[in-house]
Design a protein around this nucleic acid. Structure first.
Lengths: 195, 195
DNA sequence: GCCTAATTGACATTTTCTGCCAACTTGTCG
DNA sequence: CGACAAGTTGGCAGAAAATGTCAATTAGGC
């Protein structure tokens, strides 16, 4: 069952807004673009922008598919194999949104602003934090103590995952992202004990 | 050589503002207190508040001593012994600011808001991120690859350190914080391999 | 084709945050 | 001690972000 008209309209609007915003950011820089301008450029009212994204930084943390009730990631998580889980998630994101129709926002577009704009970075950390919370719950279910579950979940998401993204971007995106994730997870597995 | 009058005035103002803000937060909740009110309650102009703290969340990330050019932490960091480094830092914070005169802001006051207010939490993550950046530089100097340095630094600060703070607070601050830090660092050392 | 529920846009308002400048305070040096 | 320089503060004006409210429009179900 595809999508209802309302869902398609919403998804369209979200993608339109994201694209328009990134275009403006690339053109004039993140700080010099107002939400009124983004809204105007994508044909919605500013109020609607806030309804969809909450804040300007929300552009970088919103999951368009989640906004219409879809979740591509749920089944991919295996608390017993975190390195593998990270690799699967990255691969999923790499292939784009993957709804039949749109090829809209290329994955990792806007990563530049995540790394360079402190406020965006902080917002992304907030989103990672939420993910870590959920992952920690799974680890507890798998028998870890609450304290250890917290540490491990955050280490993989903030350390291995985000660290890999950053290093990959800083290196000019030459080698595949997957390698960086693998490397990051390996650094965790050996406990910083050097290789 | 103690402190110049300007430094003492500034330090006083910073502590006065922090205390007044926390009092107001405890009384009416973080979101319902405006910066104008904090400024009024502590006898400075709103403009001065912004000069000292930058944002409302800056109340939780500002280091009063750094604001007058002091650094108690620099000498404590040993890239070769991260667990020990964390324990030393926590111990330092525990004993308070430690300038001869003031006993002002009790350490960890406001932790509640760090954990409960998403915007504060995100701001603290931003500060941790800066610290992780600096720590990663030290690790690189000690021979780690950039990628590994990133992962390890973030894991210790976001995972072990912040995780310990959170767990300690959630447990009602009964056992000493030091134990939690030790436990968190141990979880990292064994690579999530269970105990 | 209607009725209901969801969604949108417009408006007003509060709050955060910044630039600018004049008034004042502190440090310093003759 | 007394000026001069440098640093610091407060007030004002204004841009931008963010939220509540409500009437108007649009989609969905029957």
């Amino acid at each position: 069952m595809p999508l209802t008209l309302r869902q398609r309209n919403r998804l369209d609007a979200i993608h339109r807004i994201m694209d328009a915003a990134m275009d403006l950011f690339d053109e004039r820089g993140y700080a010099d673009v107002t939400i009124d301008e983004i809204a105007a450029a994508s044909g919605v009212s500013p109020r609607t922008f806030y309804r969809y994204f909450g804040t300007k930084e929300g552009l970088f943390t919103a999951d368009p598919l989640a906004a219409v009730g879809l979740d591509r990631y749920a089944g991919q998580i295996d608390p017993g194999d975190l390195p593998g889980t990270l690799e699967r998630l990255v691969a999923l994101i790499d292939e784009g949104p993957g709804t039949s129709e749109d090829t809209r926002p290329r994955p990792w577009r806007g990563m530049r602003y995540v790394l360079e704009e402190p406020s965006v970075r902080a917002a992304v950390y907030g989103a990672l934090d939420g993910a870590a919370e959920r992952l920690a719950a799974l680890l507890r279910d798998a028998g870890e103590s609450p304290a250890r579950a917290r540490v491990i979940a955050r280490s993989y998401l903030f350390g291995a995952y985000f660290g890999a993204l950053e290093q990959w971007h800083l290196d000019g995106r030459s080698r595949p992202l997957r390698d960086y994730v693998r490397e990051g997870a390996a650094a965790l597995a050996d406990g910083g004990r050097g290789k």
